[in-house]
Design a protein around this nucleic acid. Structure first.
Lengths: 349, 349
DNA sequence: AAGTTTCAGTCAACCGGTTTCCCTGGACGG
DNA sequence: CCGTCCAGGGAAACCGGTTGACTGAAACTT
C-alpha cells in the first residue's frame, strides 16, 4: 500500500504521542530549557518517526523567524573551483541542521535578485558570499541590512567576516617548486585587479620571487578564464626587443582555466610544455590530470573553505561572530607532467 | 540615512494604500477574478513599491500552499553541461515568477535528502529532475507522492513527463560530418548503460552508421568522465589481432569530458589528432575551444532544455500537463581542429 | 420607485508551526 | 495535615500571508 499521501503535521504527531503541540515542538527542537520526561520524549520521537513527520519550513520560518537555510553566492558555476567549495558548504550545513542553497552571481545584478528572492522573502537565514569584489552592489545592500553573512575566498577588507585560504602560501609553494627545478625567470598570470585572492597571490609571488633572487618575475593580469590565461601568456612570452627567446621559462597561473588557456597559447607560439615552458596552475581538479601534458597544480583546500565558511556563518547567525578566519590546511603541490627543468640557455635545437 | 530596517508586511502596504490586506493580496498576485478599480490598483502598487514590500515566502507557502520555487536536481555540478541547463532553468523560472533552486544528486542518496529538505518541508512546488536513471531511489519516492515533476535530459520511459533534446540527431550530425571527411570506420564512446540520452545516441549512431554503409562502427561504454572516455578510447583503438593500425579513424563521444579523456589516451598510444584519429565531442562548452587541438563538437540546445523543462513543470503545477516534450532546436556542429580526413590506408610514415 | 445585479472591497478564518505564560498534581517541609 | 514548590505539560496568542463568504453602494430593470 502507498505511504500516507498527506503530510503529517505537528498536531498529528502530538495526537499520536498523546501530548500537546507545544511539547512536540520543544522535544523535536531539542531545546535545553525543556522539562520533559525521557519517557515522553521517546514517545514523541517515535510518533514523529512513525508518521514520517517533517516540519513545514514556511510555518517554522513564520513562527520562529528562522528558516534553517543558507545561501551560497558564487560568481560562476562553470568554474569547478566553486563546485568543490559548494559541496563542502552543503555537507557542513547539513551537519548543523541547515540547508545550503546555491545561487549564481555572474556580475552583481544576479546578486540583488538573489538577495531579494532569498533574503528579503525570508527563505534563508544568512549568506555565504564568494562573489564579492570592490563596488559590488551587494555590499551596499548588505550594509543597510542586518542579514548575517560571511565572505569566502574573495574577502572584503575590514569586514571581520572573511573566510579565506592561505593564498600567499600557494605562490610560495609553486615558486619553490619551479626554483627547485632550476627556473630563474618565472611569469605569473594573475586574476583581475581588485579580487582579493588574486591580489594576495600576486603580492606573495613578487615577494617570494624577490626573496629567492629570481632574474625575472613579470606579472600579467587576465580573467580567470581560458581566454584570459591565453592572452596573459602571450604577453609574458613575448621576446624582448631584439631577442628570440621568451623572457621566462615557466608560468604560474591563478586559476586552472587560465592554465589551460596558457598551455594553448604556448603551443601556438611553437613552444613545448614542459621542455620550453613549464606551467603550474592553481586549484587541483580532475581535468588537470587529463590535459596534455597533465598539469602540475597547487591544490587549495576548497572543500574545507566551504565547511569553514558555514561554521563561521552559523556562528554569526547564533550571535557568536568569529571574526576573520583562515582555513588551516596548507596548499599542496600536485606534481604532474607540465613542469620540468628549464632548457639550457644556449641549447636550442 | 539607512533604509527601513524592518520588513514591510502586507498589512503595512494595505494601510499605506488605504485598503485591506485582502485587496493588496489580490492586486499583487494579479488575480484574474479581481474586481479592483485601476485607481486602487495603482495605489497598491505604489505603496508596495514605496515600502519595498516583499512577501514572506513562508507565509505565502503556509497560506496558499504554494512556494513559488522549483528545484533542479542535477547529477554532477562539475559537469558544465548541467550548468548551462541550470542557467536556462533559472532564467525562465524567474520570468514565470518562480525561483529555481539547485541541488546536486551524485548518486541517489542526495536525491532523497533533497526530496526531504525541499519537497517534504514544502520549500518548493515541484522538481526538475536531470539525474534520473533506472532504479533511482527517487523514482520510487515520487510514485508515492503527488509532487509535480518533470524529467529532463535523462528521461523515464512512459512517465509522460520527459523533456529532452533531439539526441538521435546529434549522432547523425556527427557521423555525417565524419563521413563527409572520408571516414568509413568510426568508433562511438557511449555513456553508461541505462541512461536514456546515452542509449538513444548509441542507437542512432549504429542505425545511421548502417544507413551510411560504414565499414566499421564499434561502440564502447564508459562513464561521462575523462577516465571513462580514456578507457573506452583505448578499447576502441586496440588493433585487431595481427594488425598494427587502430580499427577506426575517428571517435565520436557522448560527453565533452569523455572527449578530453579520449584525446589524452590517443596521444598516449602515440597517435596524432586529427592526422591519425579525428575526434568529435558532444556539448559545446568554452573549454572545447582551448583544448589541443581545439575540439570539434556537436552543440546541444542545453539552455533551451532548461527553459523548456521549466515551462513543462510550471504547466504541470498549474494542472496543464504537457506530456513529453522535445526541444525543437537542432544540434549544431561546431567545427574545430580535432577532425580532418583520414590518413591514406597505406600512407603511414 | 422598488427590486435585482454588478461592482469593489472587506472580514475573518485558516495554514502549521513556536513561544510565553499558566495550570496541575504530587512530593516535600513544617 | 496542610501549604509550598516545582517538574511536566497544556492553552492560546501570534507569525504574515490567502481565500471565499459577505456587504454596501451604484447601476440596471421593469
Amino acid at each position: 500500500m502507498p505511504e500516507q499521501p498527506v503530510r503529517a503535521r505537528l498536531v498529528d504527531v502530538a495526537h499520536a504521542a498523546g501530548v500537546s503541540k507545544a511539547t512536540v515542538s520543544k522535544v523535536l527542537n531539542g531545546r535545553e530549557d525543556l522539562m520533559v520526561r525521557p519517557e515522553t520524549r521517546r514517545r514523541v520521537h517515535e510518533a514523529a518517526e512513525a508518521l514520517g513527520y517533517r516540519p513545514h519550513s514556511g510555518a517554522r520560518a513564520l513562527a520562529g523567524a528562522s528558516t534553517h537555510a543558507l545561501a551560497l553566492l558564487i560568481p560562476a558555476l562553470d568554474n569547478p573551483t566553486y563546485v568543490t567549495i559548494a559541496r563542502g558548504a552543503y555537507q557542513r550545513a547539513r551537519e548543523l541542521g541547515y540547508l545550503s542553497l546555491l545561487a549564481e552571481d555572474f556580475d552583481g545584478q544576479e546578486a540583488d535578485d538573489s538577495f531579494n528572492d532569498l533574503v528579503q522573502e525570508s527563505r534563508v537565514d544568512g549568506l555565504l558570499i564568494a562573489s564579492a569584489r570592490p563596488g559590488h552592489p551587494l555590499l551596499e545592500t548588505l550594509s543597510h541590512s542586518r542579514v548575517p553573512h560571511v565572505f569566502l575566498n574573495r574577502s572584503v577588507e575590514g569586514s571581520g567576516r572573511n573566510v579565506t585560504m592561505d593564498v600567499a602560501r600557494s605562490s610560495v609553494t609553486a615558486l619553490d617548486h619551479l626554483y627547485g627545478l632550476g627556473h630563474r625567470s618565472v611569469g605569473h598570470i594573475a586574476g583581475p585587479a581588485g579580487i582579493t585572492p588574486s591580489e594576495v597571490r600576486k603580492e606573495a609571488f613578487l615577494h617570494h620571487a624577490g626573496a629567492l633572487g629570481l632574474d625575472a618575475a613579470p606579472v600579467a593580469s587576465g580573467d580567470f578564464t581560458e581566454d584570459g590565461g591565453g592572452a596573459a601568456a602571450r604577453e609574458l612570452l613575448r621576446p624582448a626587443a631584439g631577442g628570440t627567446r621568451p623572457p621566462v621559462t615557466a608560468l604560474y597561473t591563478s586559476s586552472l582555466a587560465q592554465a589551460i588557456g596558457a598551455m594553448a597559447a604556448i603551443r601556438e607560439l611553437g613552444l613545448r610544455i614542459p621542455e620550453d615552458i613549464s606551467v603550474v596552475g592553481n586549484d587541483d581538479l580532475p581535468v588537470a590530470a587529463h590535459l596534455h601534458p597533465p598539469l602540475t597544480t597547487v591544490a587549495m583546500p576548497l572543500y574545507e573553505l566551504g565547511t569553514a565558511a558555514v561554521d563561521a556563518l552559523v556562528a554569526t547567525i547564533e550571535n557568536r561572530p568569529t571574526g576573520d578566519v583562515v582555513v588551516p590546511t596548507e596548499p599542496r603541490l600536485v606534481l604532474r607532467g607540465s613542469t620540468a627543468g628549464p632548457a639550457e640557455p644556449g641549447g636550442t635545437p
